[in-house]
């Protein structure tokens, strides 16, 4: 193999790797991705080690509805993601931080709560979450195989 051939094939390989990486990045960032969830906060709907298919299109165009399960950045730690259900949209009245005191969700925010309300750190702890922190909406569960089910309404 001549030197030119080696150069030619390695630059071709580099191009292929770069393109594949970029297409993967765009798909995961803008279309959809897979998320493995852990923790008890969404039981009984979701359990630890379930793998979910999520999509990023609905949050980008602000078409979220009450009842959707979403993946959002934790307001207190941006490197951590939380999986919760939207229980209030802007203008809705929700149970506030303290029992017996309700509050209205401000503009541009949503109210997130886990289904397992006894064991979930959610909007009842850190307040309404800005919509800019929402990353994706959960579409369905794909693992374990015997529990494949749609999770969007």
């Amino acid at each position: 193999m001549s030197l030119r051939n080696i150069f030619g094939s390695s630059s071709e390989l580099f191009r292929f790797v770069l393109q594949t990486a970029c297409i993967t990045h765009c798909t995961w960032e803008f279309v959809g991705d897979f998320v493995m969830c852990s923790g008890p906060s969404m039981e009984p709907t979701l359990e630890t080690n379930n793998i979910l298919l999520t999509e990023h299109i609905t949050p980008r165009f602000q078409r979220l509805c009450k009842g959707d399960i979403v993946i959002a950045k934790c307001p207190r730690n941006p490197k951590q993601y939380v999986c919760k259900r939207i229980t209030g949209l802007p203008g809705d009245r929700v149970r506030g931080h303290f029992p017996g005191r309700s509050q209205v969700v401000p503009k541009g925010h949503v109210w997130l709560e886990g289904d397992n309300s006894n064991n979930s750190a959610d909007s009842r702890v850190y307040g309404a979450v800005p919509q800019g922190l929402i990353r994706s909406r959960v579409v369905c569960r794909i693992w374990p195989l015997n529990k494949i089910s749609s999770l969007s309404e």
Binding site: Q62, P78, K79, P106, G108, H109, P130, G132
Partner: peptide
């Protein structure tokens, strides 16, 4: 990319009042 900002830096951020 690692969410490390320092005091005095100018940053752009998504408005908490309007995600667009």
């Amino acid at each position: 990319s690692d969410y490390e900002v320092r005091r005095g830096e100018i940053i752009s951020l998504v408005s908490p009042k309007d995600p667009n």
